[in-house]
Nucleic acid binder design. Structure first.
Lengths: 181, 181
DNA sequence: TGCAAAACGGAGGCCCCCCTCCACTAATCT
DNA sequence: AGATTAGTGGAGGGGGGCCTCCGTTTTGCA
């Protein structure tokens, strides 16, 4: 579990959280080049406050990214009790909710950074056992790597669809290609 | 086949084509909010010339988009002689080459525009018969629409992959979910 | 070859964003 | 309650993109 340092004082913590939430939604809407001033405005906070908490745009990316990765790890623990295929797809479902933001941020982030490596590890530790279990029980084809799977799902869900029904139909067809039948 | 009006004079035509090429690559690299001045610079042309040919950003989108759709239609004719599954995947291969640019533009374009409808029709006329043939011959599941297929492939290929091998592995797994086995 | 019309291209006004700096505010501690 | 100090927020300079306008250049035609 990776950590992000939050400020000490109550008002500062409030602003910190507001900024993080504003950044997440703003990045999701406008991509990684969303205006920082707009994010500060959304958070109801001065631009100076944003810069004190996150000196660079990159720091904001990292903070948002870390939060989402941590949530993914929690979900993985929660679904572990389900049967292998269901556990895997339930986790992917949750993965999808964050895929749009994540994808943009990951692309903007330098893949070589230590922080990125740590988060990647956290996410893999959370999700990879789900895939391995499904493969061991012969439910999923064995020549599929966890990395393949994540990229597939994240690509599939980052596009625009007519409605949610189409999105889930398309995703389930694609996942069907991974099953052993 | 949709058409884009090109200027009459030779120098103007040269500039028009240079702008179109610059726009395509710039949109592919930087998304739909690429700088117009950068595009003009890339094309070796004044900003005024860009605006004379394409009064709005949208006009540029449309011109780039139309060109790519026309190319897709040509490819569809070229692959018609192959067996059903091969014809379909060959066409999709080509579809992939343009998917990145296309996806960004499509999202920026107003879906209600007449131009969009015409292009959509052109593309459907080109590709849909390939899918229908594969379905009639029992090679592809019948509850898949052409729209489903395009969105799936365009999503799958818009993401970042480690290398081309991973991309094609992932795409082929997903397509495998569409086959009748 | 000479000329009219078409096309060029970039300066300039406007706006928004980035980021720094510092006078002010309020949370916490005693 | 008062002192201390972490925290605030926005003004402002610099930069770059958007778009218009118009003096200059190029082309095609006679």
């Amino acid at each position: 579990m990776v950590t992000v340092r939050r400020p000490q004082r109550a008002d500062a913590r409030r602003n910190f959280d507001a900024l993080l939430a504003a950044a997440r939604s703003s990045f999701a809407e406008n991509g990684t080049d969303a205006s920082l001033e707009e994010i500060a405005r959304r958070a109801g906070v001065g631009i100076g406050t944003l810069y004190r908490n996150f000196p660079t745009r990159r720091d904001l990316f990292e903070a948002v990214y870390v939060e989402e990765v941590n949530q993914l790890a929690e979900v993985a623990a929660a679904v572990a009790a389900l049967p292998p295929w269901e556990a895997l797809t339930a986790w992917l479902d949750r993965f999808v909710s964050y895929a749009v933001t994540k994808r943009a941020i990951i692309e903007a982030l330098n893949r070589e950074s230590e922080m990125f490596a740590t988060c990647r590890r956290t996410m893999y530790d959370a999700g990879e056992p789900l895939l391995e279990r499904a493969q061991k029980e012969g439910v999923v084809r064995s020549d599929l790597s966890f990395d393949d799977l994540l990229r597939m799902v994240s690509g599939l869900t980052s596009g625009a669809y007519v409605d949610d029904a189409q999105r889930s139909r398309v995703v389930s067809f694609a996942l069907d290609g991974l099953r052993v039948r």
